[in-house]
Design a binder for these strands. Structure first.
Lengths: 343, 343
DNA sequence: TTGTAGGCGTTATCAT
DNA sequence: ATGATAACGCCTACAA
C-alpha cells in the first residue's frame, strides 16, 4: 500500500503539501503540484478511504437497505440497486448492499452505529414505514425509493402513478375502447408494495373517469389461477369490457390462459396491458404484451443522487421529490375493440 | 458518536483495557470486563469500523463485482447478490455492490487500491476471464460465483451441470421418453454466460447418452421467435421427439406458442423442461413448466463464505470448489410420451 | 508557499 | 492485570 507519505517523500515535499497538491485544498505552487502529481502517478497512489473517512467523518459510502427477495421480486428491485450503485460510483461514492433482517430497526441501528455509512437509501417503502421515523430521529441522512403515505420532508424518487395511469388510459382510449378494467396487486402482497397498489388503483380509476371511460376495479388476483378466475368474474359481470390492465405478472398469465379457454384472442377480443412490469417479462408472453415499464434504474439513480446531494450540500433547500412515469411499450396485445363484440 | 474512550472513562479503566475487555484480545479480570461491558451497553457503544480497519488493515468489507443488467438478467443474479450479502452479514462482513464499468480491470485496480475491501467476489465469470488474472497477480483475495475454464487454484461456487443434467434426464427417462432435445443459450449471449452454455450442453448430451436416450442438440434460440423456429426445425428433422429442455425463458415461450399453433398440447404431446430458470418464471407459463432451478442464493452464500474463510484463515488448505445441482421442480409440463405419436 | 504538529478511533506494544 | 504510548493514513490547523 503506497501512502501519501511515500508520495511526499518521492516529490521531496511534506505530507501536508502533497495532500494539498492532490486535493487542491490550499494554494500550492504549480511546479510543486506537478511534482507531487507525477510522484503520485508513478507510485500508483490511491488515497486510503478508511484513513480519509476516519479523519473527515465522511466515508462516501451509502447503504442500500435491501429487502429479502420474495415472490414478486425481480428485475425492478435489482435495477434500483444497480442504478443506485452506478450513480453513486459516478459521484465517487460506494454502495453497501444491506439485506434486511427480521428486525429492520435493529439492523439500522447497528449499521448506522458503525460509522461506516454516510447515508441510507430505503427501498420497498411502506405507506407507514417505521424505518423513516427511526432514521429521522437519529439524524441519519436518508432518501427513499418509493414513498410513505406522507413523504413530507423526506427526499424521495418514486413512480408517477398519475402520469402512468394517464398514459395507459390515453393509449386504450386512443384505440377506441370505452371500458377499462383494472386488476390490482393481491391484498396479501407485502405491505411495502401496498403504496404502489393504492396509488395505481386510485389513479387508474381517476384517469379512466377523466377520459370518459367506464372503469371496473376491485379485483386483486395474485396468481395465475386467481387471474383466470378474476377474469371469469369480470366478463361475467361486465361482458362488454374490452380492455384490461393488470399489475401482476402471474395474474396476467392466468388472464391469457382464460381468454384462450374461451376461444378468444388477444388483442382482437381483449386489449391487455401489463402494468409495472418489464418489457423483458412481457416478451415471455404470447402475444408480447403492451407494458408500462417502471423506470427502475433511473429511480435508483435519482435516489442515490438525491442522498448524495444532501450529504454534500447541507444548505440544500427543502426536500426533493421526483416522480417518474412508467414508459409505455406497445406490444402485440393492443388493438381497437371488436365492433359490438361481447363476452 | 460514542467512542471507546467514553466507555473506558465510564468504566474507570484505560482505553486499551476497554479494548481488550471487549475483544478478548488479552486477559482481563472478570470484574473489569463486566464493568466495561456494562459501560459499553449503557452508552450504546459501537466500534468504529473505519478506525478499526485503519489499524488492523482489515475492513471486513467484500466487494461484489456486479455486471450491468442486460437481457437475460434477473432473479438469479439478484440472488447471488442477496445470498452473498446475507452470508457476509452473518459472519460480520459487509458487501459492497460494485457495478462493472466498461473497463473492469481499471475498475478493479481502483477498487482494490482504495484499501476499502478485503476481498472480491466475482460473478458472471467467463471461461477466460481477465479479471482473475489481474486479481491473482495483485494478490487480492477473491472467489468466483461460476468458474473459468480451468478454475485451478481459485475458490469458486458454481452449478453442478453434470448432476443437473442427470436429474433432468432421469426425470424425462423415468416418464418413459426415449428421445430428448436440448435448446441451448443463444450464441450471442454475453461471453460470461458461455461457460454455463458449454457445460450444460455437454452434460445434457452425456447424461442422455448414458441413460440410453437419443439426444438432439445444436439449437440455440435466443428469443421467442427463434424458439418457435427452432422448434419447427426440430420436429421437422426429428418428428419423434417427445421431450425438450430449454435454457432460455424467451425461447421456451416461443416453443409453447409453436406447439399451440400445431394444435398440440403440453404435456400430452411434449414434455417441456425449463433449465436454469426460476420456478417463479415457470409459473408465468401455461401450463406451469417443470424447472431446473439454480441454487443461486446458496451459490452467493457459498461464494461469500469461501472468501471470508480464506481471509480469516491464511493457512486454509487448497482451493475450495463447491458445485451445487439445480433443483428439479416438477410442474405441469411433464408427462409420459403419447403412444406412437409423432409430429 | 510550505512544513510541523495534532488528532480522528482503534488496536498492538511495551512497560508497570 | 492494567495503563500509557505509538502507530494506521489522512487532513486541518497553525507556524514559519
Amino acid at each position: 500500500m503506497t501512502s501519501l507519505r511515500d508520495v511526499a517523500e518521492r516529490a521531496g515535499v511534506a505530507v501536508s503539501t502533497a495532500s494539498a497538491a492532490l486535493n487542491g485544498t490550499r494554494p500550492v505552487a504549480a511546479a510543486t503540484r506537478r511534482r507531487v502529481e507525477r510522484a503520485a502517478a508513478e507510485l500508483g497512489y490511491r488515497p486510503n478511504l478508511l484513513a480519509r473517512g476516519l479523519q473527515s467523518k465522511r466515508t462516501r459510502i451509502l447503504a442500500l437497505l435491501f429487502p429479502a427477495p420474495r415472490s414478486g421480486f425481480g428485475l425492478t428491485e435489482m435495477q434500483f440497486a444497480t442504478g443506485a450503485a452506478e450513480a453513486a460510483g459516478e459521484l465517487g461514492y460506494h454502495l453497501l448492499l444491506s439485506p434486511e433482517s427480521a428486525d429492520p430497526i435493529e439492523e439500522l441501528r447497528h449499521l448506522t452505529g458503525l460509522g461506516l455509512v454516510d447515508g441510507v437509501l430505503l427501498m420497498e417503502v411502506g405507506l407507514d414505514d417505521e424505518r423513516t421515523a427511526f432514521l429521522a430521529e437519529s439524524g441519519v441522512p436518508f432518501a427513499m425509493i418509493g414513498r410513505t403515505r406522507e413523504p413530507g420532508g423526506i427526499d424521495h424518487a418514486d413512480i408517477d402513478f398519475a402520469a402512468t395511469a394517464d398514459a395507459a388510459v390515453a393509449h386504450v382510449a386512443g384505440l377506441g375502447h370505452r371500458k377499462l378494467a383494472f386488476f390490482n396487486l393481491a391484498e396479501d402482497t407485502h405491505a411495502a408494495r401496498y403504496g404502489p397498489a393504492i396509488r395505481a388503483g386510485a389513479e387508474f380509476e381517476r384517469a379512466a373517469k377523466e377520459a370518459g371511460l367506464a372503469y371496473v376495479g376491485g379485483y386483486r388476483p395474485g396468481s395465475a389461477e386467481d387471474g383466470g378466475k378474476a377474469f371469469e368474474d369480470l366478463i361475467d359481470a361486465h361482458p362488454d369490457v374490452t380492455a384490461l390492465a393488470v399489475m401482476d405478472d402471474h395474474a396476467a398469465a392466468g388472464v391469457i390462459a382464460a381468454v384462450a379457454r374461451h376461444g378468444r384472442r388477444i388483442p382482437e377480443d381483449l386489449t391487455l396491458l401489463l402494468v409495472l412490469s418489464s418489457a423483458r417479462v412481457a416478451g415471455m408472453f404470447h402475444p408480447r404484451l403492451t407494458t408500462l415499464e417502471p423506470p427502475s434504474t433511473e429511480l435508483g439513480r435519482l435516489g442515490a443522487r438525491m442522498l448524495i446531494g444532501r450529504l454534500q450540500d447541507e444548505s440544500q433547500g427543502g426536500p426533493r421529490a421526483r416522480l417518474l412515469p412508467c414508459r409505455l411499450v406497445v406490444g402485440d396485445s393492443s388493438a381497437p375493440p371488436r365492433e359490438g363484440g361481447t363476452w
